[in-house]
Amino acid sequence: MTTRQLLRTEEGTRRGGRGARRGPPPQSGPTGGGSFWYVVPMIVILGLSSIVPIVYSLSLSLFDWDWGSRLAFVGLANYVDLLGDGEFWASLSRTGLFTILAVAFEIVLGMLIAVAVQSMTRGLGWLRTLFILPLMVSGMVVALVWKVMLDPTLGVIPFLLGKVGLSGIDLLGSATTALPALAGIDTWWQTGFVFIILSAGLAALPREPFEAASVDGASAISRFRFLTVPMMLPMIGTVAAIRAVECLKVFALAFGTTNGGPARSTDFAQMLAYRTGFREFRMSESMTMMITYTLLIVIALVVVSLVRKAVHHAA
């Protein structure tokens, strides 16, 4: 689920490899053998729900299939077409922009809230419950409620903005503001997650450096800048990676509000796949698109984790 766990797993393998322990593990139990069967149901279910559809997609991506009787082998033609399709690349860059904006907002806001409530003695449990409430709401409901609140004629937010002299604001109706507005809605929805994780991380930091810095007369801002942020950086990276993976899958927020518009400005990768597959029934093309997208995400994550490792070594 996280890059950090991925890294930890890799370290575990290397250590295990060097240990070169042969034969059955020491705790193989009194009945001996057969522990394999405890894992088989999990492998079967995960295989049925992941490997089978992926292999099916991979094979159909080599055909030209439109949900009808036309089924012709075309080799890699779908991939060649996709890589030359400007609309696909445009949807990827929109998704990337959305991810960068949403993750940046969420990390900054989540960190600020975590630091603000850190030394609170009373009411922290209530605040925590309050901040996880948005996480409990379906993306579809989040999208529809915000669409109604932002409605230019009857929505409450343009109404209130009108009271302070900002009239005629239609955030979701303009091609320049729709994408940042969706990133803002995602921020309302998911900052609680970032807050919960970073808050737990802050509570686990050692106290001594902060006390020493206080004694030396360091201001709260410099303590935050030179102690909290550097010590929290690995955890911030992990949370950012989790949020980025979720944001790259963005669908419900756009489906429920803008439906990809205006002028395709919120037509994210998964929106394009949905339309291609389920509206236009170009099944092979939509499968090709999702396979390519998955490969790009995996490559991006491998690059990011390699860079993190290199930075870690350099430090």
Partner: peptide, 16 residues
Amino acid sequence: WLLLAYLLPDFLIAIP
């Protein structure tokens, strides 16, 4: 494999 499965975009699974 578990990590990878969690990364998959929904429509990679939903369409097939």
